[in-house]
Every structure is written in structure tokens, then in C-alpha cells.
Amino acid sequence: MNRSSKIYIAGHKGMVGSAIWRALQNKGYNNLIGRTSKELDLRNQDSVIQFFKSEKPEVVIDAAARVGGILANNNYPYQFLMDNLFIQNNLIDISLKFEVKKFIFLGSSCIYPKFASQPLKEEYLLTDLLEPTNEWYAIAKITGVKACEAIRKQFEKDYVSLMPTNLYGINDNFDLETSHVLPAMLRKFHEAKKKGNSPVTLWGSGTPLREFLFVDDMAKAVVFALENKLPEYLYNVGTGVDLTIKELAETIQKTVGHLGEIIWDKSKPDGTPRKLMDVSRLNSMGWKHEVQLEEGIAITYDWFKQNIENIKQVKLQE
């Protein structure tokens, strides 16, 4: 891949997109382009067509999506389904029409069935029912994966899908209504510490198992996919290691320095019992994660404290 190739990163201001931007810059790529959602509404097909006509990107990395945790997915199922379908379908289809050389589609481990065998292998896709609390987002992402696979099959284009496990890190969303579990916990423990180590109430039983990947490692996986022609259409991206939500909470509590009680609200849903990715396919190609969880949480918390006045807090509208 030429360092001066024009690379469009959709969602370049988000946690994942900004990490990809940093990673590419660090490797000497000097022709990166991005647009904020105010500058370019990816749900609007005409706007996306005009953008591609004007900019003519050679590579497209789709890190744009409407994302959120269990609460947001439950409360806004229509937006999570339709917004993501519009965003990705416009990008995928228009990239094909404008003969984009390489397209990297980013999804989520939630595309796999709720009770699939662990760890999750790529071939488990569409073999059983999804987790109900995020099926709307999952269905949209599955559609994107299959669209990219169809383009590979029919047009022999270099379109590849990367499915990350739970991501966290710099530029994460810390809004308590719409954020994922790790940043939500980090903020809760921080605020409880400020209130004299008041108790922290967390959803569920604490028993589900989850895997977490530092976003800069995800960005390096995207760069790896960019610089190599991968033979398969779908690759999991993760650490291959998981821990219970209770262990995660205790790790974050220790990092923050909160000394109060943790209360588990078992009336709230746990979500999928376990989501561990089988990352052997991408590992065998030469990529592996570098940042361990404790280190990643410490980096994220330091960034959170430094940017607390301006941290991203995404509100969803009905």
C-alpha cells in the first residue's frame, strides 16, 4: 500500500476511527481524509455519492456506526437497525460503484449467536439465534459482512470484514445512558470516589464473561489488514482472553482508587453469558494484540481525567 494513497476513514472522530487515524499517521500515511457527521451524513445516499465524486478515495475504512450498550440498544432498536444499515450500505455500494481498491468493514462480536460454542469462530456466523438485547445492531452488521463477502465473490474485490471484541480506550463514550460497560464503570467509580467513596451499583450478577481489546490494538489490526491481502472475508479481532464482569469491576475500582462497596443489581439483564473470540485466524496471518487489560485501563483512566470536561457523551434521540 502506497503511503500517499488516499484513504477515507468513515467515523474518524470516534474512538475507533481516531485510533486508526493515529496508527496510519504513525506509519507514514499522509493522504488521510475524514468528515464529521455534520459535514457528511452517511445515511444520505446523495451526499455520499457527491463526496465520492469529489474526493475519489482509493481505500475506505468503515469505522462509522451508531453504537451503544444494552440500555441504548433496548431503548432505540429502530435507530440501531436502520441508521447502521443506511451508513454501511451507502459506503459499501458507492465504494463498489466508484471502484475503491480496498474496503475494510468493522463490525462487532455481537454478530455471533448468543449460545454459540466458545471461543467464537468465524464460521459460527448465522448458525443460531442472536442475543435479544443487541440483535438490531447485530443484524445490521451481519448485513454488512455478507455484502462485503458477496462483493468478494461476485466482483473479486478486496473487501474484508474485521469483527472486534469489546473495545475501549482513548476517545471512548462515557455517557452513562449510551456507553458500553467498561467506560460506564470507569466513570461510575470515578464519580463515587469523588463523593467520598460512595457505593457503586452495577447491572446484573457480575458473572458474565467478557473480552476487552484496547482500541490502539484494534487500529493496528486495521493497518495490518490494509497492508496485507487477506485470503478470507471475515476475521475476528481480540485478545483470546476473557474475565468476569465482577473481575473487570474490581480491576477498574483498583485503578481508580475507589474504596467503597460494589452493589450488583440482579434485577437488570446480564446479556450474553460469554463472548470470547477465537482469534487464531488473524493471529496465524501475523497480527497479535500487545496491550494488556490493566495497562489499557490505566491509560484510558489517565486520558479520562485529563479530558473530563470535554469527554464524549452521546445522547440518543427518539
Rank of each mutant, 00 (worst) to 15 (best):
N283I: 02
T143F: 10
E131C: 06
L316Y: 15
A72W: 01
I151R: 06
A225N: 02
K6W: 11
F52Y: 15
A63H: 00
N84M: 04
L71P: 01
S18M: 01
S5M: 14
R35S: 12
I61K: 06
Y112W: 10
P273H: 07
V237K: 08
W303G: 01
E290S: 11
L213A: 08
D242L: 06
W21M: 01
N173M: 05
L234I: 15
L213K: 07
N134I: 00
F52A: 14
K56H: 14
F103K: 05
K305I: 11
D242H: 14
Q154L: 15
V256F: 03
Q306I: 00
V181E: 10
P77N: 01
N75Q: 09
G204K: 03
V60C: 09
T207D: 12
E261A: 09
L282R: 05
K6M: 11
V67P: 03
K188R: 13
T201D: 06
Y29F: 13
A298H: 11
E39S: 12
L293P: 12
D172H: 05
W203C: 03
L230D: 05
V145C: 12
Y168Q: 08
D270T: 03
L40S: 12
L162A: 04
R210L: 14
L230I: 02
E290P: 03
L129N: 14
H289F: 13
M1D: 05
K193P: 07
T239K: 13
N134Y: 07
V145H: 11
N74Q: 11
N26K: 12
S47K: 15
K56V: 12
N173K: 04
G260T: 09
L40M: 12
W203P: 02
S117H: 13
L176N: 07
A147Y: 12
K101N: 15
V60L: 11
T272P: 06
